[in-house]
Design a protein around this nucleic acid. Sequence first.
DNA 1: TTGAAATAAGTACGAACGTTCGATTATATT
DNA 2: AATATAATCGAACGTTCGTACTTATTTCAA
Lengths: 205, 205
Amino acid sequence: MPRPPSLRGPQKGAATRDAIVLAALALAEASGLEGLSIGVIAQQVGMSKSGVFAHFGSREDLQLAVLKAATDKFSAAVFQPALKLKRGLPRLRAVLENMIAFYQTLDRGCVILSASHEFDDQPGPVRDAVLAYLRQLRSELVRAARYAVDAGELDPTLDAEQFGFECFGIFLAAHHDLRTLRDADSAARARRAFARLIAHSTPKN
Amino acid sequence: MPRPPSLRGPQKGAATRDAIVLAALALAEASGLEGLSIGVIAQQVGMSKSGVFAHFGSREDLQLAVLKAATDKFSAAVFQPALKLKRGLPRLRAVLENMIAFYQTLDRGCVILSASHEFDDQPGPVRDAVLAYLRQLRSELVRAARYAVDAGELDPTLDAEQFGFECFGIFLAAHHDLRTLRDADSAARARRAFARLIAHSTPKN
DNA sequence: TTGAAATAAGTACGAACGTTCGATTATATT
DNA sequence: AATATAATCGAACGTTCGTACTTATTTCAA
C-alpha cells in the first residue's frame, strides 16, 4: 500500500540537506551567494552535482536556503541571547556587543551584507528575503532604543530611527575595517563609537 | 620606417577604449566588477568580443581599468571640488556633503563599495587597487579632520582616526539605505548624523 | 600614395555553469 | 521479505565564459 504522502517527511535526506547547506554557507561567506557553485558544493560534501541539486529545485532555492541559514545564525548569535536581559539599555547594549562579537567570530565575510550588495539591483525572491531580514534587523535596533527611551535611560527626544541608522553605520564600518582593511582595531573602534552614541543620547539631567 | 613606439600613443584606439571603459563602468555599477562580461560589453558598444578584448590583455586588466574610472569619478566629484575651500571645517564639510551628493547622483551602485565586498577574500591586483583607494579615502577624511583640529575648529583632544571611522560608517549606512532599502531619506539621515558628529567634536568652550 | 602599424573582426577552443533525465542504490513501512 | 518511495549517481545538454589564434580593415606617417 502506498504510504500516505508526506505525513512523515523524508528521514535521511534532511540530514544531508543540512550538511549541504552548511558547506554552502561556509562557501558563501567567502564568495557570496552569487559565487555559490553547485559543482563546488558537491565536491565539498563528497556528492555528485545532481545529488546536491536534487535537494533544491534550483540554484535560487539553494541560495534562499543558505541565506536562511545565515540569518538564523545571525539571530541566534545576536538577538536571542539579548532577550534574556532586561528591556532597555541592558538589552540594547547586549545586541550591539553581540553584533560586534559576531563579526569578530566570522573567519570570513557576512553573507547577509554581501548579499545586500549582490542583489540590490537584482529583483527576485533572494533580494526580497535579504531586504526583509535587513529591515527586521533595523527595526529590532529601533525597538530596543525605544524601550530604553521608555525606561528613561535614553533622552525622550531621541529620534529612534536616526539612532538605528547610526548604529547600523557603525556595524558596517566595523565589518568593513575588519574584512576589507583587515584592521584588528575595528571592534575597539565600534565599541568606542557606540559608547559615544549612547553617551550623547543620555537624558540631560 | 617603423613609427617610434609610443612617442605619440595610439590615436583612435584610445577613444574607443574610453568608450568601452565607460560602458563597462555603467555595467559594473549595476552588477559589480565580477559581473562584468566581455560579451555583454561588446554588445553594448557595438563591437565584437575579440575587438573589445584586444584593448585589454585580460579580464582582470579590464576590471582594473573600470575600477580606475570609478575612483577617478569619485575623486572628481568628492575631493577635487573641496580643495577650493579653506582647510579645516569648511573643506571637511564639503567633502562630507559631496560624498552624500555623489551617492545620491548614482542611479546605480557604487563600484568601489561593491568591489570591496567582492574582492575582500580574493587576493590579487584588483583587491590591492580597491584597498589602496579605500585607505586613501579614509586617510583624506582623517587629514581633513586634523586640519580642522589644527585650526581650532574641532576639539584638540579629538581622535581623528576614530572620527574617520565614524564618518565612513555614516557613508556606508547612507549608501545601504539608498541602494538596498531604497529609502529616500538616507541623505537627510546622513546629514543629521554628520551634524551631530561634528557638534559633539566641537571645542568645549 | 604607399605600406607598416594599429585596430577590429572572425572563428574556435576548453572549461565551467545550471539543469535534465534515466538508471541505480538506500531506506523505511507493510 | 517484499515493495513503494526517497536519495543519489552518471552522463549529457545547451549556454556562457575568457582567451588564443588568424584574417581583414582602418589609420597615419613617410
